[in-house]
Design a protein around this nucleic acid. Sequence first.
DNA 1: ACCCAGGGTCGTC
DNA 2: GACGACCCTGGG
Length: 291
Amino acid sequence: MEEQEYILKNQKSFCMKHIFECGQCFRWNKEDDGSYTGVIKDAVLNVNQIDNTIIFKGISEKDLKDIVIEYFDINHNYEELKEKLSKIDDFMKESIEFGEGIRILNQDLWECIISFIISANNNIPRIKKIIDAISKKYGKKVVWNNKEFYLFPTVEELSKATVEELRSLGTGFRDKRIYDTTQKIYNKEINLEEIKNMQDSKEIEEELLKLDGVGPKVANCIMLFSLKRYDVFPIDVWVRRVMNDLYIHKEKEEQVNKKELQNLANEKYKDLAGIAQQYLFYWRREDGTSA
DNA sequence: ACCCAGGGTCGTC
DNA sequence: GACGACCCTGGG
């Protein structure tokens, strides 16, 4: 592991806060100097930003540049994408102005599956806490700048965990779900490499739904955040809330029909529904006044 | 002290 | 297809 640096200049659609705090990832932490440090696969990375210049420093076996370009989806033209979405309506335009620096990360499929199983009926601080605990207990330790970091465990590493051990890490009722899913992936009952090669989104979703703890919402998050399926539209409490307030106007958001919401999103946002969802989610969660 | 809600899913009716 | 239960933690 050697220390590397990579600098990106003239990066318009890139804001660390927007990217790391929009709820798509759980392993990035803000440092005192305003930069963020996180663990991605087997690399530890620190990201700092001065205007449109982004400085990446980290330790990794592989070329840091390759990791950054892939993970932050640097070759994806967000200027163009935002322009397209902004034209849909003024709400979309406003949410994009609010979260103009959001980028959808390209995360590891396996880590994403476990992370979003943990996310069920949970809140973001506790999700982060649980993932950290799992990494600390089962993942490899990496030391950088005299600080300890823990990689997210491999399938094999986590397959050694018992249900009781998982429960003791604060997972709650999700302990069995994590256990069963890990076993299914470990014994290749579900083959992640095959899933990565599948073309049809519907086929991928069907496969993911076979995993314990993976329902429609979690499956869609996994597809959006680790398989570049931008057409899916994960429906959670926040998105249901914001979509109801903007377009549907039922008295209570619980009354909003999921199918109806799904159809509305497909019609409005088409193949960019997932990215639209992320701007809306961040807008509504961060800015209490947007109701 | 008590209640509520959180990036939902599962088992049961 | 609807409905309640579910670990745990932080905030009102």
